[in-house]
């Protein structure tokens, strides 16, 4: 066991989306994605867990200042996705199907450049209380 400690911050956002592959016809989308493909969208309360792992700073005792992490998530994630339609209102999902898998990777990529390189980052995204995705795996 080393000196590393993991800290977590939970945030949430609400968004509409649908799962749809424009390369397929409506029947094939319906077959693969079921009611998630419905044309007028549906939505979720997304719950986000961000895990940062590293050695606590000797002066502060912090792995990362939780307030700064919270502000970072609000700036990079909430401003883009909260109360939005992921398919229509975001650059990130214009050409990417907004599955929980793809959203969690996008969020990781948005946060990663703003967290010290020597710290590990892991993102978990709950689409519903029982469906969630984690990256990296």
């Amino acid at each position: 066991m080393g000196d590393k400690v993991a800290v977590y911050r939970k945030e949430h956002f609400n968004a509409a989306h649908r799962l749809y592959n424009p390369g397929w016809d409506a029947a094939e989308n319906e077959r693969i994605f079921g009611k998630c493909a419905r044309p007028n969208y549906h939505g979720h309360n997304y719950e986000l867990e961000v895990k940062v792992t590293g050695v606590p700073d000797k002066r502060t005792g912090y792995v990362m200042d939780m307030k700064l992490l919270s502000d970072l998530i609000k700036r990079e994630v909430h401003s883009r996705f909260d109360h939005k339609n992921l398919n229509l209102d975001t650059e990130e999902f214009k050409n990417l199907n907004p599955t929980a898998e793809n959203i969690v990777r996008v969020i990781y990529d948005l946060l990663r450049p703003h967290i010290d390189a020597e710290k590990d980052l892991l993102v978990r995204l709950y689409e519903t209380p029982r469906n969630f995705a984690e990256y990296p795996a």
Binding site: Y41, H44, D82
Partner: peptide, 12 residues
């Protein structure tokens, strides 16, 4: 506020 977003949002 943001609940009026014209392209919808959603909930569980």
């Amino acid at each position: 506020g943001k609940c009026a977003n014209e392209n919808w949002h959603g909930h569980n």
